[in-house]
């Protein structure tokens, strides 16, 4: 099987939500000499892009996305230890992503998907969970000041979305705004809102979030 055929097979396992098949195809790809980065960038991520597009077009739905994410997870369980061993502790990878759901909000399916996708794309993850107060965020950013850092906040409701504005303001007041890139997501978040509150970016879905995050950290 050619390398391209192996990568196509990896992509198909993601698109078809084939969890066991994805893990097997990942091992096959490694055995064939492909690197973890090639496997992620040219096999798994294109699969998640297809899934994202299909979700946008209302051709597939949340359960199918979750199954694809699970397939991706199965591959990452094999790839991450190899990548970490190759990089060593000092390597920052794509950066440190602090992910969380805004205070007052416990809807975390989107947050989990985005966290998975960021991890799969080389970010080190600090997952603060749901209903996270802004004080905690500021503390975490202060603790990691100096690192290549991305704050990734999620809010499903317009009421909790308003807290994102406070997050940006509090980071500015504490002199930490320039230490971190900020991405916000969730159903009510728009480009206009991102511009209004002075954050850096948003994304349409989990697959897009990984792409936007990588661009932001360049």
């Amino acid at each position: 099987m050619s390398n391209q055929e192996i990568l196509d097979k990896l992509k198909d396992t993601i698109v078809n939500q084939n969890i066991n098949g994805c893990a097997e195809a990942t091992q096959e790809a490694l055995d064939a000499g492909l690197t973890p980065v090639e496997i992620i960038n040219d096999g798994l991520s294109p699969g998640m892009k297809v899934i994202g597009d299909k979700f946008e077009a209302a051709e597939i739905y949340l359960p199918q996305i979750m199954m694809s994410a699970k397939a991706m997870n199965a591959a990452m369980e094999i790839l991450l230890p190899i990548m970490e061993a190759e990089k060593g502790e000092a390597d920052e990878g794509a950066g440190l992503a602090i992910t969380y759901v805004q205070e007052g909000d416990i809807h975390d399916i989107g947050h989990r998907l985005v966290t998975t996708m960021l991890g799969a794309n080389g970010f080190k993850i600090v997952d603060l969970g749901v209903d996270v107060p802004n004080d905690t965020l500021v503390e975490e950013v202060a603790k990691n000041k100096g690192k290549k850092m991305l704050l990734v906040g999620s809010a499903l409701m317009t009421t909790s979305m308003l807290g994102q504005k406070d997050t940006v303001e509090m980071l500015s007041e504490e002199g930490l705004r320039d230490s971190v890139k900020i991405m916000f997501g969730g159903a009510p978040v728009s480009d206009k809102w991102i511009e209004e509150i002075g954050a850096d970016a948003t994304a349409e879905n989990a697959a897009d979030a990984a792409r936007v995050a990588l661009n932001l950290m360049k």
Partner: peptide, 19 residues
């Protein structure tokens, strides 16, 4: 406006309801 596919595979009269 859009029937959300929380299940994704339920059908009625041979039509998938999601979407």
């Amino acid at each position: 406006e859009l029937l959300l596919g929380m299940h994704g595979e339920l059908e009625y009269d041979g039509t998938v309801l999601a979407g």
